[in-house]
């Protein structure tokens, strides 16, 4: 598989009145053509900002990409002109967002919102674009698509709107689809439908997918590889099976422990990770997870661990080998 995307040392900051928010702190990863990468982490860990930085979609000001490279098809997206990045957005890279209720323009018809990108990037005329829009709506499973082209977003349910968003994201046959928590705002049965739909479309159309979520369960059946992010950094990266079977970072262990399992005894309590992530304006020295870590040692307080190989295609940023070393602190948050 050819390399589609290579992110090197990406750093994004927000310059606010309270100080500089270090949203993304030097993340590096790669993505091959047709591959699906899951990015997990709790709210505010820089997942969304990290992927939006790829196509320079962060609001600026206050946001600014302060360093790194984003090599897409051999081209650094952070160095090209504004009009060149616009020719990639919506064309080579499609995006779907978290909240389908607010992500569609309320005063434009669904048809208009789909045809816009088709006319812009593929040079279609009105009739061609409308015909393609009907195809796309059928593709994402909207019944009697042709009749719904002139409907407005408020005439669709949340799940249907997310299907429309997917149609927009896929309209120009992108090489990469970025899905930024596309199921978070939907109810559980609809979540499953949307996940199945994207998986099916990915297999049909052969695009690569970056799927962001804070729900490890959602991506388990879909991703090839996973990144775990914490405080704007990647703390663990592994193939999806490896990550679930053999997590190497204490944060990943915590995330997995907070998931309900089918083979769990009934009545057993789920584990939660106590405390809150660090303040991104004043990041602590040392490992960002120190304050909440059960495995922490003295060194974690002063030195930030780098992402290092711990197995085949498996990287983790931790001083401790959780497979050997014991838990040092039962209630880290209370003793910190």
């Amino acid at each position: 598989m050819a390399r589609l995307l290579e992110v090197k040392g990406l750093r994004t900051q927000f310059f606010t009145q309270d100080g500089v928010v270090n949203a993304v702190n030097g993340i590096s990863y790669t993505l091959d053509e047709g591959e699906t990468l899951g990015i997990v982490g709790e709210s505010g860990c820089g997942k969304s900002v990290g992927v939006m930085s790829l196509i320079r979609l962060i609001p600026s000001p206050p946001g600014k990409i302060v360093g790194g490279e984003v090599i897409f098809n051999g081209q650094d997206l952070l160095k090209i002109s504004d009009s060149e990045i616009r020719s990639i957005r919506g064309n080579k890279v499609g995006m779907i967002f978290q909240d389908p209720m607010t992500s569609l323009n309320p005063v434009l018809t669904i048809g208009r919102q789909i045809t816009e990108a088709l006319q812009l990037h593929l040079g279609m005329n009105n009739a061609q674009a409308r015909a393609r829009a009907v195809e796309l709506l059928e593709l994402v499973g909207i019944p009697s698509a042709a009749d719904r082209l002139d409907d407005y977003p408020h005439q669709f349910s949340g799940g249907m709107r997310q299907r429309v968003m997917i149609a927009i994201g896929l309209s120009c046959n992108p090489q990469l689809l970025i899905a930024d928590e596309p199921t978070t705002a939907l109810d559980v049965t609809i979540q499953a439908q949307i996940v199945d739909l994207v998986r099916k479309l990915r297999d049909e159309l052969g695009m690569a997918v970056i799927w962001i979520t804070h729900d490890l369960g959602v991506v388990a059946g879909m991703a090839d590889r996973m990144l775990v992010m914490y405080a704007g950094m990647i703390v663990e990266e592994a193939g999806v099976k490896e990550l679930y079977a053999n997590p190497r970072h204490p944060y990943t262990i915590g995330l997995l422990g907070s998931l309900p399992r089918l083979d769990q005894l009934t009545g057993e309590k789920l584990d939660s990770i106590e405390g809150l992530p660090p303040d991104l304006i004043a990041l602590p020295k040392g490992c960002p997870f120190y304050a909440r870590c059960q495995y922490r040692i003295e060194r974690c307080k002063t030195d930030t661990p780098a992402l290092e190989n711990v197995g085949v295609g498996h990287r983790a940023a931790c001083w401790v080998d959780v497979t050997r070393d014991p838990v040092t602190t039962e209630n880290p948050w209370h003793t910190a």
Binding site: I55, L57, P59, S83, R86, S87, I88, R89, G90, N91, G94, M95, F97, D99, T102, S103, L104, N105, P106, V107, L108, Q113, E116, A117, L120, H121, M165, I168
Partner: peptide, 27 residues
Amino acid sequence: LNSDYVRTARAKGLSEVRVLLGHVLQN
């Protein structure tokens, strides 16, 4: 300008002028 649908419009690759006239003004 801070709304999600304007972000969607930008994610489609529309120019700022088209974002403003086509998506922002009417709303």
